[in-house]
Design a binder for these strands. Structure first.
Lengths: 209, 209
DNA sequence: CATAAAGTCAAGCCATCGCTTGATTTACTA
DNA sequence: TAGTAAATCAAGCGATGGCTTGACTTTATG
């Protein structure tokens, strides 16, 4: 009979290896995208053998898909939490601040959080597999945004609001990926918010006075 | 003594090969970025031999740099022409329409023009070499935008206007690269302008009423 | 026509890629 | 202590990448 011990050092080591591989993959995905990731660079960063990827994940692609799905879910959760924390009478600036909140916090935190943000931004350009499981969350997030956005942008039909939301999301993704992102990451959080929120709000609201 | 003839069939053929390679490279750069371009795929598309790239450009990287620099220059020229065509009392919507004009026209035209736009967008994320020669044009373009933008966005200092301009440019680049771009390319030009210009103008203007 | 220049081509070199294999180490079980 | 499952490792395989080579074709010159 096989007894279950509280700590099995072998399995713990395996989990550490998996985590190391996944976070090394995430960093490389964030800074070079899906094409720029190589097996050996991941394993070097994680201090693991090349065969570890096949052993633990099956293939390099499966490892990347896992890392991407994890990042996307983490981002969508943060996004929904920010929107849902808004009261029913939130102003346009508050909506914009909540919408951009996860990214601004990622800039402030740096490290893995920023890598998550950048990876999510990249898959906005090159969509991978693994969307299926998160489609529901994605659409719920969009409905939430439209619900709090609508009352603040009167006279604009829903189709156009969806377009503006996608524009605003794209703008944030761009800031995360482009070189300007490293400048923004160096800014004090409060300063970044003061610069960024009006732009996002303006994109929602439209320009014609 | 070597005489110079008006038409030298050998050199003409060589020029055709160079052009074919450059335009094949541009298309691949537009749709897959610098990492996703392979020598053999370029030469297959251009109907040339693999050695042609080394012979005419020196290396794959040199070919890509040439194609990128060409695209960037083409875009900056179009951008400056659009801004310079504005009168001294242009409205914010007119400025936004001129700012987004090259991209909207590229969507309408498709083909090589769209490839130029997408390549320019990509190098906004992964800057290559060859910037040096175009830095002047790039900064002149930015000054032009600020000049026509300033009077329309009172009470906002220049640093912030620069930030908003970069946001607006990033937004356009994103639309060119993301899957939403293919949806936009299918839209009637007039409809795209009606949707997009308010968003760009709003980003310039800021959101707080 | 002979020569030389410009261009094209098939073939192959070498590095790197993802992935597999069979042996080996490690930590737990009976 | 012997046995076993989990994990790790060095080595290498086949495919593909960029680039070079030396022969060949085409075209202009004298």
């Amino acid at each position: 009979m096989i007894r279950v011990k509280k700590t099995d050092l072998r399995r713990e080591a395996g989990q550490r290896t998996r985590d190391g591989l996944q976070s090394a993959a995430l960093e490389l995905l964030a800074q070079r995208g899906q094409e720029g990731v190589t097996l050996r660079e991941i394993t070097d960063r994680a201090g693991a053998n090349v065969a570890a990827v096949s052993y633990h994940f099956g293939s390099l692609k499966a490892l990347c898909d896992t890392a991407i799905e994890h990042a996307l879910e983490q981002y969508l959760d943060a996004q929904m939490a920010a929107i849902d924390s808004l009261g029913p009478a939130a102003t346009l600036d508050e909506v914009a601040a909540a919408f951009a909140g996860p990214m601004m916090r990622a800039f402030a935190a740096g490290g893995q959080d920023l890598a998550v943000m950048r990876t999510v931004a990249r898959i906005g350009i090159e969509p991978p597999q693994g969307w299926e499981r998160l489609t529901g969350k994605f659409e719920k997030s969009r409905r939430d945004v439209l619900r709090v956005l609508g009352p603040n942008v009167p006279g604009v039909d829903e189709e156009e609001l969806i377009f503006r939301t996608r524009c605003a999301a794209g703008l944030l993704n761009w800031l995360a990926l482009a070189p300007i992102g490293t400048e923004l990451a160096a800014l004090p959080a409060e300063r970044l918010e003061r610069q960024l929120v009006p732009v996002v709000a303006g994109a929602f609201r439209g320009g014609a006075g």
